[in-house]
C-alpha cells in the first residue's frame, strides 16, 4: 500500500470524527482555555483594567471555606444518588424482569418523573416538603403524630432531601438501564445456579451483580456526571442554603461570579477542573480493573 492510499484511507475516518471533535474544541476546549488563562489575571467587575497577577488568585483559594463544602457536597450528592438508586433499583429491576403481571405498568410509572424537567421537579418538591402549613408531606407527618421535619431548612437534612428528590426523579432511568442489562444475562445462568442449589442471595451476588457490570458502569458514570454538575435542582429548592450547607461546585462557582471577581472565579473553576479530572481517572481506572477481573 503506498502512502497516498494510506492517507486516502484515513480521510473518511477523520471526516467522520471531525464534527464532534471540532465542536468540542471550539465550544468546550477554547472557552476552557479562556478560563484557565483568566485565572492568572486580576479581573473584576468594578475595574476596566485586566492585569496579569500570576498565582495570586490561587493563593486565596485554600482559605475559601466554600470550596471544601461544595466539593464535599457534590461528591456526596453524586455518590449517594448512585448508591441509593442502585440499591433500590437493582432488586426492582430483577423483579420487573420476571414474568410478573402488570410489570409494564410499573415500569411506565417508575420512569415517569424522568421526563419532567428538573426545575419543575425542584419547585414541586419545594412546595410538597415546605415546613409551612401548606407543606403536604409535613401535614401527613404531623397528622401521624410526629414532629415536622424541616426538609430544606435544616442544614443537617437539606442535602439528603435534595438527594432523595434526585433519586425520586432519576431512579426510573437507572432501573431501565439495569433491566436492559438483565435481559442480556442468559436464563441458562440462572437455571444453572438454581440447580447448583444457590440461594437467592448467592444468585444475586455472584451472578446478577457481575452480570450487571456494564449497567453499573453506565449508571455510575451518568450519576457522577450529573452529580458533579448538579445545579438546577439546588437552585430550585435551597439555592445553597441554609447558611451555605447545600452549596455545590456549580452553585458556589455561580456565587463567585456574582461577587464580580472573574479572575478569582476562574481560578476557582480551574481547581474544579482538576477535581473533575481526578474523579474521572479514578472512575475509569477502577472500571477497567473491575472489567479485567471479571474477564478472567
Amino acid at each position: 500500500m503506498n502512502r497516498n492510499q494510506k492517507i486516502k484511507n484515513t480521510v473518511p475516518y477523520i471526516a467522520m470524527t471531525a464534527p464532534a471533535v471540532l465542536l468540542f474544541l471550539i465550544f468546550f476546549v477554547i472557552p476552557l482555555f479562556f478560563t484557565i488563562r483568566y485565572s492568572f489575571y486580576n479581573w473584576t467587575n468594578y475595574s476596566p483594567d485586566i492585569t496579569f497577577s500570576g498565582l495570586s488568585n490561587y493563593v486565596k483559594i485554600p482559605e475559601d471555606k466554600m470550596l471544601k463544602t461544595s466539593i464535599k457536597n457534590s461528591l456526596l450528592f453524586a455518590t449517594a444518588t448512585v448508591v441509593i438508586q442502585s440499591v433500590i433499583t437493582m432488586p426492582i429491576a430483577v423483579v420487573l424482569n420476571s414474568k410478573l403481571r402488570g410489570r409494564n405498568i410499573f415500569r411506565a410509572i417508575f420512569f415517569m418523573p424522568v421526563v419532567m424537567s428538573t426545575l419543575v421537579v425542584g419547585y414541586l418538591w419545594k412546595y410538597l416538603l415546605s415546613s409551612s402549613d401548606y407543606g403536604f408531606v409535613n401535614q401527613i407527618i404531623t397528622g401521624l403524630g410526629f414532629e415536622k421535619i424541616n426538609f430544606f431548612g435544616n442544614g443537617n437534612v437539606a442535602m439528603w432531601t435534595i438527594i432523595l428528590v434526585e433519586v425520586w426523579q432519576w431512579f426510573g432511568w437507572a432501573m431501565v438501564i439495569y433491566l436492559g442489562n438483565l435481559q442480556n444475562i442468559s436464563g441458562d445462568l440462572f437455571e444453572a445456579a438454581s440447580v447448583d442449589g444457590a440461594n437467592a442471595w448467592d444468585r444475586f451476588w455472584h451472578i446478577i451483580v457481575p452480570g450487571l457490570a456494564p449497567a453499573i458502569k453506565i449508571n455510575v458514570v451518568t450519576g457522577m456526571i450529573n452529580g458533579l454538575k448538579v445545579f438546577d435542582i439546588i437552585v430550585a429548592t435551597t439555592n445553597g442554603g441554609p447558611a451555605h450547607r447545600t452549596e455545590t461546585i456549580l452553585t458556589s462557582m455561580y456565587s463567585k461570579f456574582s461577587d464580580g471577581n472573574f479572575g478569582y472565579a476562574s481560578a476557582y473553576g480551574t481547581v474544579f477542573l482538576v477535581v473533575a479530572m481526578i474523579v474521572a481517572c479514578i472512575l475509569l481506572g477502577g472500571f477497567k480493573k473491575w472489567e479485567e477481573r471479571l474477564g478472567q
Partner: peptide, 24 residues
C-alpha cells in the same frame, strides 16, 4: 487520544467557562 479528549469533557460542567463561552 481523541476518545480521551472527549471523555475529559464529560465530567466538567461547561458553566465554569461561561465567560469564555460568552465571548465566543
Amino acid at each position: 487520544l481523541v476518545f480521551l479528549l472527549l471523555l475529559s469533557g464529560m465530567m466538567f460542567p461547561y458553566q465554569m467557562s461561561i465567560l469564555g463561552l460568552y465571548k465566543l
